[in-house]
Amino acid sequence: MGHRILRYLTLLTLVLASPALAAGPKANQLFGAEKQGSPHPAEAFGSYAKGCAAGLIALPETGPTWQAMRLSRNRYWGHPVTIDFIQDLSRTAVQYGWAGLYVGDISQPRGGPMTSGHRSHQIGLDADIWMLPPKRLNLTRSERENLSSISVRSADQRSVNGNWTQAHYLILKAAALDARVDRVFVTPPVKIEMCKTARKSDKKWLQKIRPISGHHYHFHVRLKCPKGSKDCIKQTPTVRKLSKGGDGCDETLEWWVTDYLNPPKPKPGAKPAKPAPKKRHPREYIMADLPKQCANVLSSR
């Protein structure tokens, strides 16, 4: 115990006080090197895009209604609430004719910034679910590395394509209706199609379906901060505020397939808008940028 405390204090001192460490290994390199979760009760620290997590557990690589994909990435770790949700949703998918779910990235074993790809997925509460309906759930490790998902978006990015099915709709609806879920990110044409399909008397849940660029090969489920994670930062604005208390099937949604794809030209003589300040990517973070608890999460053995 004394050795563990000494290790933690040494690391914390270096992280907070050493300019050399600030110029040294980035946080994503440190968290990306971890192979197992930390020996703590499950707890999320910080925000979805700037944090870490203690006590994450691995989604079993294969289950009766799911398979974890791209195992070489070792990103199939999540908060127990997330792992339970994935398994529950995979069983729901069977009710709608799928064999289950192919599960993409969740988090690294101790969360934190990733060595490649995502800005988020840092606190064990995000999960990517493939749009590809599984044909079988006995894929080998090699097959899981080489199989690709399918896009449900048309080439012009304005509508869904022939890969989109009623089962996709029902699985996404089930995810949105789950009380554990904060929001679900999808390609904008999917939300547009779901707005058309949903009954007028049953659309409030659609406020959780949030349009975002990309996300046509998978949908991204984000869970709420769970009980016991007092230092987990809730995402704002809420989906209720983003949807103005409604379902989000409005002009803000249509923007994604109009102005977003074909930005209006500035009026003659108008001054060009100042470019927005460049945000630091999480891959640039050092340990001092993360919640203070992350040093302990990283150092514990």
Results as ranks from 00 to 15, higher is better:
234 K>D: 10
242 L>A: 14
5 I>Q: 14
212 I>G: 01
89 L>K: 02
20 A>W: 12
212 I>P: 03
261 L>Y: 15
159 S>I: 11
30 L>I: 02
7 R>Y: 04
76 Y>T: 01
152 V>Q: 03
222 R>V: 09
267 K>R: 10
214 G>Y: 13
25 P>L: 04
274 K>R: 14
50 K>R: 15
26 K>R: 15
194 M>C: 06
129 I>M: 03
190 V>P: 00
66 W>M: 04
132 L>A: 07
208 K>D: 00
114 M>W: 02
79 H>F: 05
286 I>R: 13
265 K>A: 09
160 V>H: 13
61 E>V: 06
178 D>R: 10
16 L>D: 07
135 K>C: 00
300 S>A: 15
124 G>P: 04
236 T>P: 02
15 V>A: 12
27 A>Y: 10
192 I>T: 07
174 A>F: 03
147 L>K: 14
65 T>M: 11
271 K>L: 14
155 A>N: 11
175 A>D: 06
273 A>E: 15
203 K>N: 13
228 G>N: 01
171 I>N: 01
121 H>P: 07
23 A>T: 02
216 H>F: 12
225 C>K: 12
39 P>D: 09
77 W>P: 12
147 L>V: 14
95 Q>L: 06
112 G>T: 00
235 Q>F: 15
207 Q>G: 02
173 K>W: 09
125 L>R: 07
281 H>E: 13
195 C>Q: 12
196 K>E: 10
187 T>C: 03
288 A>H: 03
103 V>Q: 00
75 R>W: 03
174 A>L: 06
94 V>W: 15
286 I>P: 00
100 G>K: 01
39 P>E: 09
194 M>N: 01
198 A>G: 02
279 K>G: 00
52 C>Q: 02
73 R>S: 14
217 Y>S: 13
24 G>V: 01
95 Q>G: 07
34 E>R: 15
244 K>T: 12
193 E>W: 07
115 T>K: 13
194 M>F: 08
33 A>N: 05
253 L>P: 11
33 A>C: 06
291 P>A: 12
257 V>E: 08
171 I>E: 01
15 V>N: 13
126 D>V: 10
69 M>F: 13
65 T>H: 10
74 N>W: 08
115 T>H: 11
211 P>K: 00
29 Q>M: 01
190 V>A: 13
67 Q>H: 11
135 K>D: 11
43 E>K: 11
84 D>C: 04
3 H>Y: 02
301 R>N: 14
70 R>I: 11
185 F>N: 14
48 Y>K: 00
191 K>R: 00
171 I>G: 04
190 V>F: 05
28 N>P: 07
128 D>S: 02
166 Q>V: 08
11 L>N: 08
156 D>P: 04
220 H>I: 05
185 F>C: 03
116 S>Q: 13
124 G>L: 11
67 Q>T: 08
258 T>L: 09
263 P>Y: 07
98 W>D: 00
242 L>F: 05
34 E>Q: 15
269 G>R: 12
78 G>C: 03
285 Y>R: 01
265 K>M: 05
27 A>V: 08
235 Q>S: 14
176 A>D: 08
155 A>Y: 03
81 V>L: 08
271 K>G: 09
132 L>Y: 07
286 I>N: 07
131 M>P: 03
180 R>T: 01
85 F>Q: 05
58 A>S: 14
273 A>M: 11
163 N>F: 14
70 R>G: 07
82 T>I: 04
39 P>H: 10
232 C>A: 12
236 T>V: 02
110 R>P: 14
162 G>C: 04
119 R>C: 04
206 L>G: 00
74 N>T: 09
99 A>T: 05
